[in-house]
């Protein structure tokens, strides 16, 4: 985000000395202003506010300005925090691996196995149909399906595959991750499909002419060229999963927790400062994860 700002404001400082006029610099700044203001009000200010509140104190029903480290002390002092952060990473990692595998396969199929472009577009739109309903509905509709007496269990029993209903189908890590994968795979498909579409078919022909097998050209040609798409998809999925709370609550029947739930519990109990402190730590964690991811691929160069 800040990169964008810098780029837009560049003409000012660079041009000013050359033309020796204040006017151009000012115009540059003015041109950048709308974006700067939008970012300050809707991105920077809320984050600053959260950071400030994280040092405040709270009573039963109100919060008061203060500078205390209690919220952080409690956060780092409780082993629940570490367990919950671990669970959050676990959900993110497993969901990432599954959405990547499915998303890449779908994108690969669409890009290289479907010949006509209209067919490609039609099939791609087909992928988005589930997204015409709300997130929550798509998630909750799993519940009657996976329940103890749900369709999945009764079908399996009918086929004679199991004798007792499988308890772990619902209200477990399994159901949480299933819902995540269902909800977020498209965020992987779209950017990967986008990059695979831009691979020049000549490159694949060249690979084949040079004797590469299908698998070799997949690993050495297609995969490196789709890396930016994979990375964008990864950022989407990882941030979505790490910030989620409602999926975990519904699909685990409140039996499991991730950081988002910790925050939402605090908010519902009017403990805003403690929620803010947790949010700050989560924000830092997510930024670190994205920072690490961006070291692998320079998205700006690749796009």
């Amino acid at each position: 985000m800040t990169e964008v700002v810098r780029e837009v404001t560049l003409p000012g400082p660079v041009d000013a000395p050359r033309r020796k006029s204040m006017g151009a610099g000012l115009i540059g700044w003015l041109q950048a202003m709308p974006l700067v203001l939008v970012l300050v009000f809707f991105l920077l200010a809320p984050i600053v506010m959260i950071v400030i509140v994280s040092f405040w104190g709270a009573t039963e029903f109100s919060i008061y300005p203060d500078f205390q480290l209690d919220n952080y002390a409690f956060l780092f002092g409780s082993d629940v925090t570490y367990r919950v952060f671990f669970a959050t990473f676990k959900y993110a990692a497993i969901t990432w691996a599954l959405t990547l595998a499915i998303g890449f396969t779908v994108a690969y199929f669409l890009a290289f196995h479907v010949r006509s472009q209209s067919m490609q577009i039609a099939l791609f739109l087909l992928c988005t149909i589930p997204f015409w309903t709300s997130n929550i509905i798509r998630m909750i509709s799993w519940i009657p399906f996976l329940g103890r007496n749900g369709i999945a269990n009764s079908t399996l029993i009918e086929w004679g595959l199991i004798e007792q209903p499988l308890e772990w189908l619902l209200y477990s890590d399994f159901s949480v991750i299933l819902a995540f994968v269902h909800l977020y795979t498209l965020f992987m498909v779209v950017p990967i499909f986008n990059t695979t579409m831009r691979i020049d078919p000549v490159l694949l022909e060249a690979a084949r002419d040079n004797g590469a097998s299908g698998f070799q050209s997949l690993v050495h040609v297609i995969l490196p060229l789709t890396k930016p798409g994979i990375m964008i998809g990864t950022i989407f999925v990882v941030t979505l999963v790490m910030g989620d709370f409602i999926t975990v609550r519904f699909m685990s029947g409140s039996q499991r927790a991730n950081v988002g739930r910790l925050i939402s519990n605090d908010i519902s109990l009017l403990q805003y400062p403690s929620a803010a402190a947790t949010a700050v730590i989560l924000l830092i964690t997510v930024l670190m994860v994205i920072g690490i991811l961006l070291r692998f691929v320079n998205i700006r160069k690749e796009l």
Binding site: A58, V80, A257, R261, D266, L269
Partner: peptide, 12 residues
């Protein structure tokens, strides 16, 4: 407040 924090731990 103590109870609420404990409750949060219990849920997690």
């Amino acid at each position: 407040q103590y109870m609420v924090r404990k409750w949060n731990e219990f849920i997690a």
